[in-house]
């Protein structure tokens, strides 16, 4: 079964609406050729260098593929990553990768989930932000067993704890490693 981009965007915007962050009202899906910068707000775009750190105001946006390399960009709250994974699983997506980004200036960690569809050209990015001093997020490894390693790796590099993960021992770092090298404040 191959879902259409519109259906997916619709499904995710509903997810965002039902579980939206309280401060934010449900937002329409922005479509079409978004500006080259990731954020839709003109102010942020003008600001340039500080653009990326702020969370995109529009949680679900379709993106022009040639510009960014993916089709759908969804920002959700950390609680919803499992739900999002389930939706994508039902739609036949496969997990591409999971990674973190350490936004030290905002004192936040971003966790990015990339998905691709094995049967069609559809790339979905799910992103969420967690607090940097207590980075914890539910695991999606029950939905995608392949997430197990990706989450372990993210834990290695960023110290993000995936609650419910079966085994968070270092994967790529030595077994006794207690450092998280990709944090921006890491020193060897």
């Amino acid at each position: 079964m191959i879902p259409s981009l519109e259906q997916l965007a619709e499904r995710f915007s509903r997810l965002v609406v039902t579980n939206a962050v309280p401060s934010r009202s449900p937002l329409p899906v922005t479509t079409g050729s978004a500006p080259p910068v990731a954020v839709a707000t003109p102010a942020a775009a003008a600001a340039g260098q500080t653009a990326a750190p702020t969370a995109p105001p529009c949680p679900v946006q379709t993106v022009d593929y040639p510009l960014k390399g993916y089709h759908l960009d969804v920002s959700i709250s950390p609680r919803q990553v499992v739900l999002a994974a389930e939706i994508l699983d039902q739609n036949g997506f496969a997990l591409d990768t999971i990674t973190g980004v350490d936004w030290i200036a905002q004192n936040e960690m971003e966790v990015v989930y990339d998905y691709f569809h094995p049967l069609s050209v559809l790339r979905v990015v799910i992103r969420t932000r967690i607090r940097r001093d207590n980075p914890e997020i539910p695991t999606i490894s029950p939905v995608f067993p392949g997430a197990n390693w990706h989450e372990r790796e993210t834990h290695d590099f960023f110290g993000i704890r995936f609650s419910g993960h079966p085994d968070l021992t270092p994967l790529l770092l030595p077994e006794d490693a207690d450092y998280h090298p990709l944090r921006k404040d890491f020193t060897a």
Binding site: V37, A38, V39, Q49, A51, A52, G69, D114
Partner: peptide, 26 residues
Amino acid sequence: LPAGDYCYAVEAARGRHMVRVVSDNK
């Protein structure tokens, strides 16, 4: 690079290789 994140995937000999770069305009 303009701020934002960008993906580019290629078919390497072993499968899908994707690079995701995040730029803060530096």
